[in-house]
Simulated scan of single mutants.
Amino acid sequence: MTTLPLPVVRTVADLRAAVAEWRRQGLSVGFVPTMGALHDGHLSLVREAGAQADRVVTSVFVNPTQFAAHEDLGTYPRQEDRDAQLLASAGCHLLFAPESDAMYPEGFATRIEVGGPSQGMETDFRPHFFGGVAVVVAKLLNQVQADVAVFGEKDYQQLMVVRRLTADLDIPTRIVGAPTGRDGWGLALSSRNAYLSEQERGIARRLNGVLAEAGARARNASPSEAEAWACEALLEAGFDRVDYVAIRRVDDLAPFADAIDAPARILAAAWLGKTRLIDNLPV
């Protein structure tokens, strides 16, 4: 174990030893998985975990299995010292920062496929993504063995996949979804926002408003009509292309037929230059 502003462990054995000591003291454990390059949205998850448990573990691991060959694995921002300082200020007690070969040693051959809420949307454009997420989340939850784990609602489809995964595999960690952190203009906080130019950032801040308007339109139109309107509105706002806008059922992300007849969520992914932004809102 090393110490920056807070203790850092890099092996599963050291992680489990620290958690076991907390257990011996009768303390509950919360967990927040991240890929680092932390911002206020991540820190709000850490604070929520601290409100739900006595001790908080945060992982920082840029997971290679959820990146395709053409995506930004090599350039994804890495800043462990800064992340550790931010985590300490948010009440984290332990940073788990494994190396890639500790998570995926030579000979690693296991895959996990989650159906249901993984179908469509992100999967249509990143077919590798949820397989990589499922493996790393299953590993992390097994490694930490926390009472509760907190995920952000910004990645809403991912949150639903994690809930399906833990239910299907009888993983006892309780999964909590925390509200999306936003800047003062409503832009969802994301590590990839650092890629945006000032002009692109101004356009990006319109995404939230378009989704809100589309959700309102869906009350008096079919979901497909509201989705089509939102796609056009995003292009007119200055987005370069739109991967999807989808209105889905809240609980399982199943599509609606002709009308919204249950609680719904509107989800979107769109591009500005080389930056892909995602967001979602309740309808």
Rank of each mutant, 00 (worst) to 15 (best):
G26I: 11
G26C: 10
L27D: 14
L27V: 01
L27Y: 04
L27N: 08
L27F: 05
L27M: 12
L27I: 02
S28Y: 09
S28M: 08
S28T: 15
S28D: 08
V29L: 12
V29N: 03
V29Q: 05
V29F: 03
V29S: 03
G30H: 07
F31H: 05
F31Y: 15
F31T: 07
F31G: 02
V32I: 05
V32P: 00
V32F: 01
V32E: 00
P33T: 11
P33H: 05
T34V: 08
T34H: 05
M35V: 09
M35E: 10
M35R: 05
G36P: 04
G36E: 10
A37S: 15
A37R: 03
L38P: 03
L38F: 07
D40I: 00
G41T: 11
G41F: 12
G41L: 12
H42T: 13
H42P: 13
L43S: 08
L43Y: 13
S44A: 15
L45I: 07
L45D: 04
L45E: 06
V46I: 13
V46K: 01
R47I: 10
R47S: 13
R47C: 07
R47D: 12
R47K: 15
R47L: 09
E48G: 00
E48Y: 00
E48A: 13
E48L: 08
A49H: 02
G50T: 07
G50R: 15
G50N: 08
A51D: 14
A51R: 15
A51S: 15
A51T: 14
A51F: 05
Q52T: 04
Q52P: 01
A53D: 09
D54H: 12
D54C: 06
D54N: 13
D54I: 06
R55T: 06
R55M: 12
R55E: 09
R55L: 06
R55V: 06
R55A: 09
R55Y: 10
V56W: 01
V56M: 05
V56K: 01
V57N: 06
V57M: 07
V57A: 06
T58F: 00
T58V: 15
S59R: 00
S59A: 05
S59H: 03
S59L: 04
V60F: 05
V60R: 00
V60G: 08
F61N: 04
V62Q: 04
V62P: 01
V62C: 05
V62G: 02
V62E: 07
V62T: 06
N63I: 02
N63C: 06
N63W: 07
P64E: 12
P64A: 10
T65G: 00
T65A: 09
T65E: 01
T65Q: 08
T65W: 06
Q66R: 03
Q66N: 06
Q66K: 02
Q66D: 11
Q66L: 04
Q66T: 04
F67W: 06
F67G: 01
A68Q: 09
A68I: 02
A68F: 02
A69S: 14
A69E: 15
A69L: 11
A69P: 12
H70T: 14
H70P: 00
H70C: 01
E71K: 09
D72T: 07
L73V: 05
G74V: 11
G74W: 11
G74M: 11
G74H: 14
T75S: 15
T75K: 14
T75D: 14
T75M: 03
T75G: 12
Y76D: 11
P77W: 11
P77D: 14
R78P: 11
R78A: 14
Q79P: 01
